[in-house]
Amino acid sequence: MLNPTILWPAILNGVTTGALYALIALGLTLIYGVLHIINFAHGALLMVALYIVYFLFRLFGLAPYLSLAIVPPVMFALGYALQRGVIGRAGHGRDENILLVTLGLSIVIENLALMLFSSDTQTVETAYGFSTVSVLGAFIPVPKAVAFVGAVVTALALWAFMSRTDLGRAIRAVAKERKGARLVGIDVDHVYAMSFGIGVGVLGIAACLLMPSYYVTPQVGHGFILIAFTIVVLGGMGSFLGALIGGIVIGVVEAVGGLMLGESLGQIGIFAIFILILLFRPQGLLGHRA
């Protein structure tokens, strides 16, 4: 069933789609790497970010790419407040409580969106929504090419931030040794909230880059949450470059799996990789053994 003439465009498409997935997974991997929590509200927060992009466009005519100046900071603030005000207080030292509270938050956020915005599918129409660039005979939609660049830049920026700035070093210290970090005078709760905020802020970037080629509904996050987890595991929990590479690998696997097995059954490739990685290399492609 594999047609060689479409293999190249399919792979190229997988790479760009995968980079978009990676962008969504970057925040998740940061949150997991530092706070060691599985954030089930990640999909719902992506949805919130997409709605902000949409309303900025609809009400103020702000192009999605210009929203990059607004949406990530807003999402950062939202993330910081959520961690400081709700999630951080709910743990009481028990993992299951974090699980429950992020689950509860996602239910609240999604249904609030349903109440306020109704479940209509919303899209933004941009001049470049339908344009493509040709790469060696394959058409890449412009929004996806932009998203690819955005993902690479964001991953590199996060990596540089973590290794070059004081806050980044503090975050890494807390991630490794919480008690020790507290002893040397790091405000752990603040660092946690900053990490969560940055993780959610990155979702804001993802939303600005995703919106021109996608849509938003209150349930839109569901389609991305599982694939984002897969990428986090694949790349190694807490690794940004791992997430980038993991995302691209998943994108390509999805594309080639779809060609060989059909789009429905082809999805199985993603989960097969996921399970194999978990079994044989649980630290992920670029993670370190704990």
């Binding site: 479409i6 789609t17 429905s264």
Partner: peptide, 20 residues
């Protein structure tokens, strides 16, 4: 005959198969 799940995040792959 191409089947795809709901939601499908990206249709490029399907479009490519249709094109071929």
């Amino acid at each position: 005959v191409i089947a795809h799940p709901t939601p499908t995040r990206d249709f490029t792959n399907i479009a490519l198969q249709v094109k071929a």
